[in-house]
Design a protein around this nucleic acid. Structure first.
Lengths: 224, 224
DNA sequence: GTCTATAAAGTGATAGAC
DNA sequence: GTCTATCACTTTATAGAC
């Protein structure tokens, strides 16, 4: 009988423990505050958000922000680092594979990124601001340092340009590719106001870009 | 003798007056504060700049900002409006002429804009932030309202796309053109760090873009 | 862990002397 | 017009009760 009781208690403990482990990632106070911070920081930027905004958005008290994260800046750094890795890690893998060719990589990047950005349209502006605000900090958070070898895509592109005797700086091509992927998410208001586009129309245009960016890239290189 | 004195005084007054008129546009206190404000606002954005920063940058006292401009926000609005018109007015003229063709316009815009942006590299990020921060305010300051007819370029592009039976949304082409012009100025840190480019190298690349953007545009359209 | 209350510093704006 | 001094308010951060 005693043994049975013990087992039940043990079992309940186990359930509780696993349940907690499963839930905690999304429902801890700490995590809730982080989610609130991510939302507000992404929307308004560092300077314009007050810790009170984050507290309100999280549903918790102002003091808890400092209890969990020490300061506004430390919290921001965590969010920034996460956003950067979320943005970068997808691409780093693709960009540094030797087994795929250049155009194949462009295809993968365009597809992966645009899908990601459709779900996180505020990320590009957030990242570009963080990058311009403090480049050194940004690239170190990104795990990039001057000694890092240039990514394989860049080498592959260079090879194509040399082989085909194109007269362009590879960075000019890379900027076009990055711009084609990212710019629409910076200029959404233009599309909406001047282009007079509805949300679904914008969606259609963005989906179309996934397919077209590799094609356009090829055309750009061949015209150079 | 009295008459001579009078003439001299008059003459001196005239000199002084004209001299003042010539100088005042650049050396009035008001103008100096505006220049300081432009610099700081463009560098750090509205929320992150303190009126004290502007005062220090201008060389004048904090109180003079309110004396001349009533409030931080009113000063910002003036700067924003000026930046927007400076950025827009160049293009509006080009974009709405019926006498030039589409590709000719792209040529002119690329050339004019990139030259302008080389001298004012902080403007694109400033404008994009202002636009995303408060689109309604932004477009009204820009003199654009929903009733405004779409610019002539857009019509000309549409005509080309229909005539050549291209299967793209015109906005997709416009975003590429805008992105090709503007994106390098948002991503300068990438070029410098990852591309490891010196300032002169970056300059060379940017100059090359002036010529290439029309060519690339044509290639993109023909590949669509 | 979470709250209330408050300290400590910052920030926009103004009054008043010169 | 320009400055110093200061007010009024906001904002980050912490102390201490529960």
């Amino acid at each position: 009988m005693l043994k049975n009781m013990c087992l039940i208690v043990c079992f309940n403990q186990m359930i509780k423990c696993n349940f907690t482990r499963l839930m905690e990632k999304n429902s801890t106070t700490e995590e809730k505050i982080k989610q609130a911070a991510r939302k507000v920081f992404t929307q308004k930027g560092y300077a314009a958000t007050r810790t009170r905004d984050i507290a309100e958005e999280s549903g918790f008290n102002l003091a808890l922000i400092n209890y969990y994260f020490r300061s506004k800046e430390k919290l921001f750094d965590i969010i920034m680092t996460e956003e950067i890795s979320g943005f970068a890690e997808k691409v780093v893998a693709i960009v540094n594979t030797a087994t795929t060719g250049f155009y194949e990589k462009v295809e993968q990047i365009a597809d992966t990124y645009i899908s990601f950005l459709i779900d996180h349209p505020g990320v590009p502006l957030f990242i570009i601001n963080a990058m311009n605000d403090d480049p050194k900090k940004f690239f170190s958070k990104m795990g990039f340092n001057p000694k890092t070898e240039p990514p394989i895509v860049l080498m592959q592109l260079l090879e194509i340009l040399i082989q085909e005797k194109r007269n362009v700086h590879p960075m000019n091509i890379m900027m076009n590719i990055m711009g084609m992927i990212v710019f629409p998410f910076l200029a959404t208001p233009i599309a909406q106001r001047i282009g007079n586009m509805s949300k679904s129309e914008l969606m259609f245009v963005l989906e179309h870009r996934k397919k077209m960016i590799p094609v356009w890239t090829k055309a750009i290189i061949e015209a150079s």
